[in-house]
Structure formats: C-alpha cells, structure tokens
Design a protein around this nucleic acid. Structure first.
Lengths: 238, 238
DNA sequence: CGGTTGCTTGAGATCCATCAATAGGAGTGG
DNA sequence: CCACTCCTATTGATGGATCTCAAGCAACCG
C-alpha cells in the first residue's frame, strides 16, 4: 500500500474500495532530486502535492538571507489543505532527499470526499493533525529551549514515521543535516550541534549516519514536554 | 452585517442569499467575560466557535508555567477548521476582552458549503488565510528579532481588523496587555516593553490606552519584513 | 485612601549567535 | 591507492539578544 492510504487509515476506517479510490486519485507522479525545489514561492499551483516517498519541506527565505522551514513533509503527507488551491504559493517546497510525489487535482479529491464519507473523514482528520503539528511548532519556537525543541522534534518525527510504517521501533531515518534542523528549529547550526550533544550525553538519543535512535523514549518525551496526544493517534511504541 | 459574513466576503463573491444562509447558520450565541476561559484544553468540543465581537485567543499552558498563545481570534474568525470536530481540544480558548461568540454545528456549515459554492469557496479561503497566518507566526518566532516580531504583529492585526471594518485607517484597537503580547511573540513582557519603545522611538507606531496608531505604515512594514500578500487580500491602506 | 494591575527602568545572568578554525568522510580524478 | 575537494560535524572564544529579578511609578477602583 502507498503511504498516503496508510496515513489516512489512521483517521477513519477505510474500506478496500476506499483505498482503491485513493490510489486512483493520484495523478502525475514525479521524481525530484534531493535538495532541489519542487514549487518556488509565488508560483501559481496547479494541483495538490502528495509525498509518496522521501522527505520534503516547505520553507520561507527571508530578505536578510535567513531561512525558516515551516513544515517537514513525510511520505503520505499532503503539502497543503485539500479543499482548494491557493491563488499563489506563499511558501516554497523543496526536496530534502530524493522524493517521489504525486499531483492530485482538487476536484478529484473533493469528488472522492463527497462520495465516500470515510475518505472525507480521513482527509479532515489529516488536516487537523497537520494543523496540530504546526501549532505545536509555534509552542516549541516560542517557549521551549533548544534541547527541548530538538528532543520534541525527534519524538514527533519518530511517531509520524511509525504511523506510515517507516520507523523501526525507536529507530528511524533522519536524513536532515544539522543546518537543516537549525532551519526547522529557529536555531543556528552550531547550537543544534551542542543541543544534540546534550541529548546524547544524557543518554536520550543517538544519531549517526542519518539514522536516529531514541535510547529512552519515556525520558526523552518527558524532557521535551512531548505529549503524543496532539497527533490524534494512540501514541504507539511504549 | 455581522463580522463573519464580512470576513468571508473577502474570499468569494457572496450573494445576499449567501449572507442570509450564513447568518441563519449561527446557533447559540454566548457572551463571555474578559479574561475567562471559553474552552479548556482536553474538553470534547460540541460545536465550532465563531467570534462575533471582541478579541479571543487560543493558547497552551506548559508544565513549567509558561504560556504560548497560538493564535489571536478577531471578530469574524473561526476558532478551528470548519470541516469536522476534533475528538478533543488540543489547546484552550480564552477571551481577551468581553466576547460575543456563536456556536455552529459542523453539519450545518457543511450543508451550506455543499449547497452554495460561494460559501464553500469562502470557507476554504478562510482556512487558507488562517493557516498562512499561523505559518507566518512560525517564521516570526523562528527567525525574526523581537522588534521585528512586534512590528509584524501590529501590521498583521491592523490589516485583519481592516478586513472586517474595525480599523480606522492606520489606527485600531489593541486591547492586549504587554504580558499577553509577550505570550503571543514568545518573549518576556519586559522585553516587549523595550521593543515597543524601540518602535516608538523610531517614529513607527504609538500605542496608548489600548489604541494602536501606525505612524508610518510603509516603513513599519519594511522594518518588520511584512508582506501583506500572505493574507490573500489587496493589502489595503496604502 | 489602600490595593491591584499594568507599565517602566536598571542590573546582572543566561542562552544562543557569530566567527573562526579543525577534523572527518564521501566522492573524484589521476 | 593517493591527492584533492567539498560538505558536514565539531570545538573554542567572544559578543549580543533576551531573560530574570527587583524596584518604582501611574492609573484605576472599590
């Protein structure tokens, strides 16, 4: 099964027919190289984007050269709300690794939603989760220390990957450089490095070769004020 | 006309009939005192909330006593996405001033959306704007200095108020205390005070008696990296 | 009036950014 | 297999932005 269906099945009980409809909905499939732009800011979007494989992100470049990554997109994620297309993109979309994505026509998705209540419910659930993740990012950036932000992000990514079958228990891929992590967390890359050493030295995580291992999930969650409830799943891996 | 209809009319061309439908959709109307909770975190929501008058906010209290306001709600704003109710509230809702709000049943709103394409389009537009505002907050918290954050917030609020007819040109109400501003911007109230003095001393704004006056809109927008495009309107007041 | 709340100011501490240098891999071409 | 380059990770030193603590002041209110 593709990641999109797997993700949505957390939000509603989907029948086999639902899954077929979801698969058939996907339009053009594109492959994008690592570190290349998918949609530039200001472009007029023609379709919705679903990530099928690989990691992507949406970000904003600021006039003074800084950059803020506003969301990390994993397999199964929709890059924007499913209802309508914005008149122009107010953020850029880029691949962090090689990415496979599908373009979906909003009309197709809305038709499917109107026809199959399970699909509609799942899509709305997905939208609520995406907005909860973004809200949680606001809380992190506003009120959490560097180490807490980093730990919280690790917890979030591990759980999101687990939801689409891409985590191996407490272990998962984490293909971001420290400088990219910095752009997610609103920090400098130097300070990400030091925060990471802090988490490592406390025995909470290890990270090498683009692979994250959470050594003590309970303590990491506690230290980072991570409450899995906001992702509206069961919190998995205990 | 009530603020909800006025706000939505920026997102689509609404007929008189549409406006009547929107008005009739509003269910129970409640009045809430300033500084009291509307919905506590964790509660099971029974209906969507529309702000009709006054200022409200959604926020998260953290275990260490800190607080982060995740969004400011003005007249006409929906407190959550219109499609479905979440299983539980993952943030609290509070009144910042005396507030009049209406509860709306999601079924009523969805029926209206299915029947009237203009209403559907307007509701989706509203959702896109809300998510753009939240994304912009992430950018502010992650990458902008204290004075920039404050100036950016002033620009945002002035423009949002203007959209619902509540700004008097470059002047508008701003009923938040400095400590509440701090909780929006991820700063301490002391530093909000100093940043405000910075903006004042540069002749950009004045703020007294809960009233904000933007003295030089162009320069404030430039100094705060504020680009009105993300609100998907015409940028108003030039 | 006295109490409360919000604003303002000063001083010192802390967190994090910046700058700069070094070290470790991965790939590349010879 | 070696020399070279590039990119990322790491470390140290310094400075700046912001926080915390603490005190004083003004406005409002019963």
């Amino acid at each position: 099964m593709h990641a999109f269906g797997r993700k949505l099945s957390h939000g509603a009980c989907l029948t086999d027919e639902n899954h077929v409809v979801l698969r058939d909905m996907l339009g053009t499939v594109r492959r994008v190289e690592a570190h290349s732009d998918i949609t530039p800011e200001g472009a007029t979007p023609r379709a919705l984007t679903v990530i099928l494989e690989g990691w992507a992100c949406s970000y904003r470049d600021l006039p003074d050269g800084k950059r803020q990554i506003t969301s990390i997109l994993l397999p199964g994620d929709l890059a924007e709300p499913f209802g309508i297309l914005p008149r122009f993109a107010d953020r850029s979309l880029a691949a962090l690794t090689p990415v496979t994505l599908a373009l979906v026509c909003p009309d197709a998705i809305r038709t499917a939603a109107c026809t199959y209540p399970g699909i509609e419910k799942a899509l709305w659930w997905d939208l609520l989760v995406a907005s909860a993740i973004e809200r949680e990012r606001v809380v992190s950036l506003g009120r959490r220390s560097a180490s807490e932000r980093l730990g919280h992000l690790f917890c979030e990514l591990q759980l999101r990957l687990e939801m689409v079958g891409l985590a191996d228990g407490p272990e998962c891929d984490l293909p971001l450089t420290q400088s990219e992590l910095a752009d997610v967390l609103g920090l400098s890359s130097v300070h990400v490095n030091r925060s990471l050493q802090d988490l490592r030295s406390r025995g909470l995580v290890s990270l090498q070769n683009r692979r994250l291992t959470i050594r003590d999930l309970d303590r990491l969650r506690e230290a980072s004020f991570f409450d899995p409830a906001y992702l509206h799943t069961e919190g998995a891996t205990r």
